[in-house]
Amino acid sequence: MEVRTIKVFTTVDNINLHTQVVDMSMTYGQQFGPTYLDGADVTKIKPHNSHEGKTFYVLPNDDTLRVEAFEYYHTTDPSFLGRYMSALNHTKKWKYPQVNGLTSIKWADNNCYLATALLTLQQIELKFNPPALQDAYYRARAGEAANFCALILAYCNKTVGELGDVRETMSYLFQHANLDSCKRVLNVVCKTCGQQQTTLKGVEAVMYMGTLSYEQFKKGVQIPCTCGKQATKYLVQQESPFVMMSAPPAQYELKHGTFTCASEYTGNYQCGHYKHITSKETLYCIDGALLTKSSEYKGPITDVFYKENSYTTTIK
């Protein structure tokens, strides 16, 4: 009895394709271990004539594949690729409408935090270190965002349907971005203890939790000093293409032309909904596939993004 075979390709990165001759009487799992086709788990399936010449994702289970996976995804987590594939199996079914010149995501599976993050990423200057993220990001900007969303979920250790947080998501993504040249110098002034300067680099240099107003941050924000008295913390120097200011959701007025974009969060910790506000020729609110415009805006804002380049204080 002759062994019926077909020729397929296996890959971990969709760049390096490895030619395989597979036995049609055995499952993919018996031949390769966990195997995925377009995100779908085909591990328990036997090869079919229609699979001839198709590319299958496999887990990096030998040295060659491990090197290829690390170079593309910059992670050695053995569960990463499987999590990416199972997320992709959902995100490829989502709709990605162009809204006001940006790629958004039609609401499904509690994905409003991903839509808000995706919209924000198209408006701030950011370059990702893992080629996987950078490639998928370019495709997302062009309207094909399924891979990018699935990668975000995998890097953030999230599953489809789980509630997510924009600030946490951005923080994970910033860790995989090139923020080497970003720098922030802060000064804390206390009447009792004097003053202390701190220099922050990388992710810490672009994120701040405690106030939404970048102007206020430049002037000074009140913080408790270690001595128990009130101290003032203010920005001395900022070198970065953008800054992200966050605070627990509270009524906040966004003035046209003073910011790049913002995240609105309605609801409580267990259950809520994100919308995205962007400042173009007027203010726009993007909620999944829905767009509304207004000249002014007041609502429960939790993150505001500002364009920056270089700032030095005039406070002496």
Rank of each mutant, 00 (worst) to 15 (best):
T5I: 10
I6Q: 11
V8Q: 02
D13A: 06
D13F: 05
I15D: 06
N16R: 10
H18I: 07
T19L: 12
Y28K: 05
G29I: 04
Q31H: 10
Q31L: 14
T35V: 12
Y36G: 04
G39E: 11
A40H: 12
D41N: 10
T43I: 06
K44T: 14
K46I: 12
H48V: 13
H51Y: 06
H51L: 05
K54Y: 15
N61M: 13
D63I: 07
E68A: 06
F70E: 11
T75A: 10
T75V: 10
T76Y: 11
P78K: 11
S79Q: 15
L81V: 14
R83P: 04
M85I: 10
A87R: 04
T91Y: 02
W94V: 00
K95I: 14
Q98S: 08
S104K: 03
S104H: 04
I105M: 04
D109A: 06
L114E: 03
E125S: 09
N129A: 11
D135N: 11
Y137P: 03
R141W: 06
E144R: 08
A145S: 04
C156E: 03
K158D: 05
V160H: 05
L163Q: 08
R167L: 03
T169R: 02
F174W: 05
H176R: 11
N178V: 05
N178T: 06
N178M: 07
C182A: 09
K183V: 10
K183Q: 15
N187S: 12
V188W: 07
V189P: 03
G202I: 00
V203H: 11
G210Y: 01
G210R: 02
L212Q: 01
Q222W: 06
Q222I: 10
Q222E: 13
C227D: 01
T232S: 07
K233E: 11
Y234F: 09
L235W: 00
V236R: 03
Q238W: 01
Q238G: 02
P241N: 07
V243I: 10
V243E: 01
P248G: 05
A250P: 01
T258W: 03
C261M: 03
T266H: 08
T266G: 10
G267S: 12
G267V: 08
H273W: 01
I277A: 00
E281Q: 06
G288R: 02
T292K: 11
K293S: 14
P300R: 14
I301A: 00
D303I: 03
Y306T: 00
Y311H: 13
T313L: 15
T314N: 15
T314L: 15
